[in-house]
Design a protein around this nucleic acid. Sequence first.
RNA 1: GCCCCCGUAGCUCAGUGGAUAGAGCGCAGGCCUCCGAAGCCUGAAGCAACGGUUCGAGUCCGUUCGGGGGUACCA
Length: 553
Amino acid sequence: MMETARDVVAAALRPALDAAFPDWAAGGAVLEVERPKDPSRGDYATSVALRLTRHLRRPPLEIARAIRDNVATGEAVAAVEVAPPGFVNVRLAPGWLARRVETIVRAGPAFGRSTGLAGRKVQIEYVSANPTGPMTIANARGGPLGDVLANVLAFAGADVQREYYVNDAGTQIEVFGKTLAVRYRELQGATGLEIPEGGYRAEYMIDLARQLRDELGPSVGDGVSLEELGRLLAPRAIAILVAGHQRVAERFGIRFDHFTYETALMASGYFGETLADLRRRGVVEDRDGAVWLKTRELGEDIDSVLVRSTGVPTYFGVDVAYHRQALTDRGFDQKIDIWGANTHGHARRMKVAMAALEIGPKWQVIIYQFVRFLHEGVLVKMGKRTGQFLLLDDVLDAVGVDATRFFLLQSSADRSLDFDFELAVQQSNENPVYYVQYAHARIASVFRTARERGVEWSDGDLALLDHPGELSLIRACLRFPELVRELSETHQVHQLTGYASELAGLFHPWYKANRVVTDDVPRTKARLRLLDAFAVTLRQTLGLLGVSAPESM
RNA sequence: GCCCCCGUAGCUCAGUGGAUAGAGCGCAGGCCUCCGAAGCCUGAAGCAACGGUUCGAGUCCGUUCGGGGGUACCA
């Protein structure tokens, strides 16, 4: 596992702290090493002296000085300084920083990888859009979030499965089928039929009916009731829509390793097994002909129905079984669901159910707030049933895959986003993703120039990289492995876009101010090696984001 | 009513309890005989309000006021 620069600093500070204050840790403080916002203060800093003031009953500056006096400077740590009110600032040796270029280039596609989560089997479930309509920009937000989280966790060594759950049973499917049957009959010339209550009024249902008629022949469903026709048509329609979800997801750079169908889960008998387990644990109650999970006793406001009085399990009931299966029979150590904000009530009940099954700590949910859809500046309520929505396909046509992914990954999941289609099209060329990609393309262009002039730079002397700007670029690269480790714990993957912008924001001014390929051959070579490392870092970052790193644009 | 998320620059958003709060767009002005101007430089402009915890709060806690979502034998 690669040691980060932060680790190196911590390893230098810890013995100093131990030597100066042998019992420092007894107060519960931990040695945290951070990057000062103002780089002139140093490369890394710790506020541990401030935190230890109470425990050691000594002034923070005095503690800080004692730490400083005990640090052994060396190859990496060049200087340690104390600043009021009690910070200990650490400066890394320029030569050591410059030599990191070699490490980064040699690591290449492995730069930032780690084994921190090795041996951990994680399932990430995301998108899982209802199979009753096409993929919209609202469903789509979970895609990049889940995909990038999967990338990050796999990068940190976990064994990750990307899972998609197809909710192809239940009341909504009945309504869906009935709507479809109505549209189908209409194609056969029927009039005066009503779309059922809560049905799917959107245009795509008519297209779907037409497609099914062409596929199955015009006489399908002759002589059967509307309900029966619905049950006949729904499975085929769902297959078409799920295939569509897969196609558009793939276009969006999102793949899945495994699909679970609710109908298959039901057919397996696993639901009954789960219900029996819950009964054994005494958290189930039969009342009014239905089967309830006693969520009320477990801290919720109301109980939750697992099986309706009709004998049909609820979505919640089946979902509990599905989660139990993943976290027991399928052997995952952890399951992370990426769900939309409308599921938070469901998520609360699920949490209770998982706790009752004693698998609570293994399950985690990331709830993302919705993407609100503005049309010509006016907020539009999206809903498949109402027919008002913005298709992911249309967004990708107009804005492009990279820009859409980057846009959706710029804010944290728990913040709602506004997507103004017209504005997005108009501004698609101003998306920050191009700023980042342009940095990569520019570096590629510098390499082309160097090659044209016959410069071979692999033997460049890194010791020549001693300008502040050059060292800043290296420092920025060294943050990448630190960030990956952080994200593997916090799951705040949107920070990768900010980091990518930071990299580009350092590069462009430096590029403007410094010519790389010049008559000074030694310096040219050293700088080309630096850019090699920088390009590696950009590619690694964009790679985790699922955004391309173009050689030219 | 109760529950969840969010109020940071004109707009869209960043900001692991640390030192002087950032970016993009927009706005005002400047920069291509030089590896790509999808770029660079300069400027104006901000933590909703009030309490609390802390050596230190945009960040944690409480209240108020705004915005979004949820609260079914729907999914």
